[in-house]
Each structure stands twice: as structure tokens, then as C-alpha cells.
Amino acid sequence: MSRTHRPRLGLPGWVFVPAALGALFVVLPLLAMLTRVDWTQFPELVTSESSRAALLLSLRTSAASTVLCVLFGVPMAVVLARTEFRGQSVLRSLVLLPLVLPPVVGGIALLYTFGRRGLLGHTLDVLGLQVAFTTTAVVLAQTFVALPFLVVSLEGALRTGGQRYEEVAATLGARPTTVFLRVTLPLVLPGLASGAVLAFARALGEFGATITFAGSLQGVTRTLPLEIYLQRETDPQAAVALSLVLVVVATLVITVTRRSRTAL
């Protein structure tokens, strides 16, 4: 009995040329940066007090902003993916606006909202709460620019997964909250994990909104990207070394998350 062989699917040969050029465009600058690192001074450059403070602050604030992105982004993505209402397209555009806005514009918007003379900042200041130019401002700035990444990723996962399992659960008498917690979230968990890591990575590299809304005070608001920018003017070797640290941390986060997503 002859065995039926499925034809092997192949790609056009020309596809590999632009693919290789694109990969080279991304990898070559990283390799160029490696050639400029003074490896004999590398440990000293990345373990200085200011460098360690900036790295720890970046990790803390990025983790906090990721938590906020999950708390706000999951409900937003569910509403956008599972409901229809007038003005929904406008709302989606506004939610995704930070993806295309220059981060410094986001920083200005946050400053006029939470600053001392801002829309809400004046009331907060009367209550003795100051947001601008504090660590809280760093978290808010990172959340503002990172939130759309989680919403986009999760909304796409929700639309791809469909609603058939949720409809079955509702037919069997499950309450909306039970359906959401027991059916919807487990089904889109890989998309949620992917969105969360994108949000964390974006928050980790945030610069423009942070320096505009939070300033650059060592140990309080000076994150690693801000430290790199300042060191670039005074100590280029330190700036390159810290840039490499940021690349390594971001790579580790993405790698761990991709493995977790594969396991799920």
C-alpha cells in the first residue's frame, strides 16, 4: 500500500534576503555597542551607586506599572473585544493613542493632570498629596505609555479565541463573573502573559514621559534610561555599559516570558 506524501511547503527564495537585512539592521547596532564596551572597567561602571540605584528603581517601578496595566488593561480589553456601543472606535483610538504619541507629549499631559496646578493635582495638593516629580509619577508615566501594549495584545487574543466556551458556560447557568474568571481569563492567559511582558519591557525603557513628568532625582525618579542619558554626556563608557545592562535585562524578561507562554 503506497503511503501518501504531503507536499512540503516552502518559501520563495527572495523572502530570505529582506528578512536577513531586517535581522542585520536590528542585530548590527547591538554588536557595534559591544565593540565599544571597555570590559576591563565594565564591573566598576555598572556597579556604581548611581547605576545600582537607577537599575533597582527601574525594576521596581516597571513591576508596579505592569501590575497597574494588568488591573486596568484586562477590563479595558474585555470591554473592547466583547461589547459593542456607540463611540467604541473612538474610545479604542484614544486608548491606543500613547502608541503613536511622542512620550514627552504624554508627560506633558500627565503634568497638566497631576501636577500642582493640574486638573486633579490642585485638589491632591490641597489634600497633602504630591504626585509630580515623585516615584509615583514614574509609575504613572510608565503605565501611561505601556498600557496600550497590554490592551492590544489581550484584545487580539480575545477576538481570536471567540466566545463559544463563554456562551456554553453561560447557558449552563454560570454567572458573568464566574464566566470571566473561570473561562475567559484561562483561555487568554498566553495573550495576557505576552501583553504583560510587552508592558514591562516598554515601562523599563521609558524615558520621555518620565523625565517630563517625574524629573531626574537620583534614587527617587532617575530610572536607568535617564541615568544612561546623563552618563552619555559625562562618561560615555558608563553609558554604553549601562545600555548593555538594559539590553540584557530586557532580553531575559522576554525570553522567560516566551518560555512561560510556550509552557502554557
Score class of each variant (00 low, 15 high):
residue 234 T to C: 01
residue 73 G to R: 10
residue 10 G to V: 08
residue 21 L to G: 04
residue 170 A to F: 10
residue 53 A to K: 09
residue 238 A to W: 03
residue 134 T to W: 04
residue 57 L to G: 01
residue 221 T to Q: 07
residue 264 L to P: 09
residue 88 Q to D: 00
residue 250 A to G: 15
residue 81 A to M: 09
residue 176 P to F: 12
residue 5 H to A: 12
residue 156 G to A: 02
residue 61 T to G: 05
residue 157 A to H: 01
residue 130 Q to P: 01
residue 85 F to G: 05
residue 23 A to Y: 03
residue 239 A to H: 09
residue 258 R to S: 15
residue 195 G to R: 01
residue 208 G to E: 04
residue 195 G to Q: 10
residue 78 V to H: 08
residue 161 G to T: 06
residue 143 T to E: 09
residue 257 T to H: 12
residue 161 G to P: 02
residue 158 L to N: 02
residue 92 R to W: 07
residue 182 R to A: 12
residue 241 A to L: 02
residue 182 R to Q: 12
residue 231 Q to E: 11
residue 239 A to N: 06
residue 209 A to T: 10
residue 122 H to A: 15
residue 236 P to L: 11
residue 169 A to M: 14
residue 26 V to Q: 11
residue 151 V to W: 03
residue 138 V to G: 01
residue 78 V to F: 13
residue 138 V to H: 03
residue 11 L to G: 04
residue 68 L to W: 10
residue 14 W to S: 14
residue 109 A to F: 03
residue 132 A to R: 08
residue 161 G to Q: 11
residue 250 A to F: 08
residue 261 R to V: 15
residue 1 M to A: 13
residue 88 Q to Y: 08
residue 78 V to R: 10
residue 107 G to P: 07
residue 230 L to C: 06
residue 142 Q to P: 08
residue 101 L to H: 04
residue 49 E to R: 13
residue 239 A to D: 03
residue 261 R to T: 15
residue 256 V to W: 13
residue 123 T to Q: 11
residue 239 A to G: 12
residue 132 A to D: 11
residue 64 A to T: 06
residue 25 F to D: 02
residue 188 V to K: 07
residue 174 A to I: 08
residue 84 E to L: 03
residue 50 S to G: 09
residue 118 G to H: 06
residue 147 L to K: 02
residue 13 G to R: 14
residue 36 R to H: 12
residue 26 V to G: 04
residue 66 T to E: 08
residue 201 A to F: 00
residue 91 L to Y: 07
residue 63 A to W: 06
residue 55 L to I: 14
residue 225 P to M: 05
residue 251 T to N: 12
residue 74 V to I: 15
residue 82 R to Q: 08
residue 49 E to N: 06
residue 252 L to F: 13
residue 19 A to S: 10
residue 55 L to V: 15
residue 182 R to P: 02
residue 45 L to E: 02
residue 176 P to M: 14
residue 155 E to N: 08
residue 77 A to G: 02
residue 141 A to P: 09
residue 19 A to Q: 07
residue 186 P to H: 14
residue 157 A to D: 00
residue 57 L to W: 04
residue 138 V to P: 04
residue 198 L to Q: 05
residue 53 A to N: 11
residue 66 T to F: 07
residue 37 V to E: 02
residue 91 L to F: 11
residue 68 L to S: 08
residue 112 Y to S: 10
residue 186 P to E: 14
residue 136 T to L: 10
residue 204 L to Y: 01
residue 197 V to Q: 01
residue 181 L to R: 15
residue 140 L to F: 08
residue 157 A to L: 05
residue 194 S to G: 14
residue 3 R to Q: 10
residue 26 V to T: 11
residue 32 A to Q: 12
residue 81 A to I: 10
residue 35 T to P: 00
residue 44 E to T: 11
residue 160 T to D: 05
residue 206 E to K: 13
residue 50 S to R: 15
residue 264 L to D: 13
residue 180 F to S: 14
residue 151 V to A: 08
residue 133 F to K: 01
residue 203 A to D: 07
residue 198 L to W: 01
residue 232 R to K: 06
residue 186 P to S: 12
residue 107 G to T: 04
residue 146 A to V: 04
residue 201 A to V: 14
residue 10 G to A: 07
residue 254 I to Y: 13
residue 168 V to H: 06
residue 103 P to D: 06
residue 101 L to N: 06
